[in-house]
Design a protein around this nucleic acid. Structure first.
Lengths: 207, 207
DNA sequence: CATCTTCTCCGAACAGTGTTCGGATAGCAA
DNA sequence: TTGCTATCCGAACACTGTTCGGAGAAGATG
């Protein structure tokens, strides 16, 4: 019986979800600085000290927020089954860009370090979450090139091949990052810029 | 006579420079959260309230910091006269990457928005500072293609041409951003990754 | 049922932050 | 020397994250 859940366990699970949801809304509305321990406590109607029952510190709440954002992005870029395979790269680019423009604070939270010198633990959950975001991209690139690539194979492939796949991701990520952070205000059609140029960079991978 | 500078003016200029220098060191050592108004006041041996004589608020100190970082990067990527012209793109990539890896906090401060919804004023100094960083890149790309491009011409050129130049910047910026923020820990030689792939993306611009 | 343990929650407190205000003092121009 | 202004300080305000001790409820054990 896995369905046996005591009353306290259910309330705990619901409250944790509510705390994360409030924090995510605060993040979306006012950036990282707007996520406040005491502000969350006020919204859930509890004493600030009581929140330590659910998260050891504010940083732990942020890691939960990071993991949730990774999952949200991974879901957004997951290819739909009814999509034409040769449109895979373009579809991935559109999903990546749209998610970033819709959730700019989460985008920067995921990809930009806040503490200098911090490195994610090698076996940690953030690397898995990041892999879930990148794996679909590797597959659609492989499909576009007709080579059936997967993210696991990429670990034992020639360095040049790895670098070429990374350059595609770099092009996509770089353009999206510049767009999200308002460094290309003169671009009229961001989607066309990103899709066309990334598709072109994939085509350039053929020898 | 422009050299006439009263004693107060000199002290003010020196103190402003000292404040910015301390803030930059705090930023480099502990990230944005480590830049503290009261901490600066302690270091210069003054009351926190006295600093408001020199900066209206902490945000204004950060804009000064941003402008200084832009200038530092612009100086780093400025091509040296004795460099072979056909190596221009590679040299720019190396400078961009080295500066970013040496000053990760400043890199993220410049390129990543901290407040959602904030947009730089159109005629503001940050756009000029950003232009000073990008102009050399446009020139070395033009030199590599043999078309003598400049950043002023880029405003009135075909959209497709503009997008192709932006894709080069996007590739460079994206790879560097991923490297700076520890998202490519498995890459052995970051410099080769960045230089080779960006040079390849420039070569792919030829029809 | 009663007992015992663990979880939950609170109030108070501590150290820290950015910022404002009133007043004292020094530099500078008239 | 007389004014004006820039500078600087101390005190205060409204916040922040975090720790601690205690009170009470929930769950498990007898």
């Amino acid at each position: 019986m896995t369905g046996t859940e005591t009353r306290r366990e259910r309330q705990r699970r619901e409250l944790v979800a509510e705390i994360v949801a409030i924090a995510r809304r605060q993040l979306d509305e006012g950036g990282r600085a707007a996520v406040s321990w005491r502000g969350i406590a006020r919204e859930v109607g509890m004493n600030p000290a009581s929140l330590y029952t659910y998260f050891p510190s504010l940083d732990d709440l942020f890691t939960a927020l990071i993991l949730e954002s990774y999952g949200s992005l991974a879901t957004a870029v997951r290819p739909s089954a009814d999509e034409p395979p040769h449109e895979g790269v373009a579809a991935y680019c559109r999903a990546y860009l749209d998610w970033a423009l819709t959730n700019p604070s989460q985008f920067n939270l995921i990809w930009t370090d806040q503490l200098p010198g911090y490195e994610a633990p090698p076996g940690g959950p953030t690397v898995d979450a990041e892999t879930a975001v990148i794996a679909p991209l590797v597959e659609v690139i492989g499909a576009a090139l007709g080579t059936e690539a997967s993210v696991e194979q990429l670990g034992s492939v020639a360095e040049e091949t790895l670098h070429r796949y990374l350059s595609v991701w770099g092009t996509l990520h770089g353009l999206v990052a510049l767009l999200v952070n308002h460094h290309l205000p003169f671009v009229d059609d961001p989607e066309r810029l990103v899709v066309d140029q990334v598709v072109r960079s994939v085509d350039a991978l053929r020898d």
